[in-house]
Nucleic acid binder design. Structure first.
Length: 261
DNA sequence: ATGTCTTGTAGGACAAGA
């Protein structure tokens, strides 16, 4: 069972890249962020044609999240993060996929920081932590995946000193991420690769990909009820080098079948 | 500071988010 998260940065503009990657990687479940498409412009048909059912929550111009699944029942649980009825950004969607709960999130970027956008980021993070704690209390298999817009540690950025003034690397979101994981979640990639340099994002500017000037922003957190099944985790880095690619690369985990544990 | 890519509005160039 392969589960991926991928900030696609425009699901229609990059549909050929998405379809090519789906065909190559054959993930069973995919969390997409930054659809940049309104609800009625999601490419449901094209994804069905390559074998994926979808649920999504679109938004005109920005944000937007989706969950895709192949050969698995897919049932939406909620399409927004609880805790603030006035928050209209499409940044969270959650579904029962097979026998797991899959949560797809797109945490606010927060720049420029400090400022109102940073405050929104931290308020969103607080709501996420509260909901994540509730999910853990359910004691079920949960995958909490997405673009967290947080560089967790200095190990997760090519040049930490270049990012100290950026909302992705500010102490507050790093602390919040640490506290979130500390609730009892497993950061899949770091769990299996504690010392390796692993990036999931390379800026479009200044040939960042060519210089491997990357960041690790996309994370798949596992609840204790599913973490023992983790057997592999990685990034499809080469996809970032494709024509018209997103600035993020698909990030994935492989879980053993339930009966193998 | 730099500079790249997206979408939307509008029917060409620009704004804004990231």
């Amino acid at each position: 069972m392969k589960i991926a998260t991928y900030n696609i940065n425009g699901v229609n503009g990059r549909l050929p890249v998405l379809l090519k990657w789906l065909e190559e990687a054959k993930p069973d479940v995919v969390c997409l962020q930054e659809l940049k498409a309104p609800q009625d412009k999601f490419p449901e048909r094209a994804l069905l044609d390559v074998g994926y059912n979808s649920i999504w929550h679109g938004q005109k111009m920005w944000n937007g999240v989706a969950i895709l699944a192949r050969d698995l029942p897919l049932q939406e649980v909620r399409n927004s993060l609880p805790g603030d009825e006035s928050d209209l950004h499409s940044r969270y969607i959650e579904a029962i996929v097979g026998r797991m709960l899959v949560c797809c999130l797109y945490l606010p970027n927060g720049n420029p920081a400090p400022g109102p956008k940073f405050d929104y980021k931290m308020a969103w993070f607080k709501r996420l932590k509260k909901h994540a704690k509730y999910l853990l209390s359910e004691e079920v298999p949960v995958v909490l995946a997405g673009d967290y817009n947080v560089i967790p540690t200095e190990k997760d950025v090519y040049k930490p000193e270049r990012w100290v003034d950026n909302a992705l690397f500010f102490p507050e979101p790093r602390k919040a991420y640490k506290e979130l994981v500390g609730q009892g979640w497993i950061d899949s990639i770091r769990h299996l690769h504690p010392d390796e340099t692993i990036y999931t994002f390379w800026d479009y500017l200044r040939n960042a990909y060519g210089r491997d000037a990357g960041l690790r922003l996309d994370h798949l957190l596992l609840s204790p009820q599913i973490a023992p099944r983790l057997v592999a985790a990685g990034v499809d880095k080469h996809v970032r080098g494709w024509e018209k690619s997103s600035d993020h690369a698909p990030t994935w985990i492989v879980l053993a079948d339930e009966e193998e544990i």
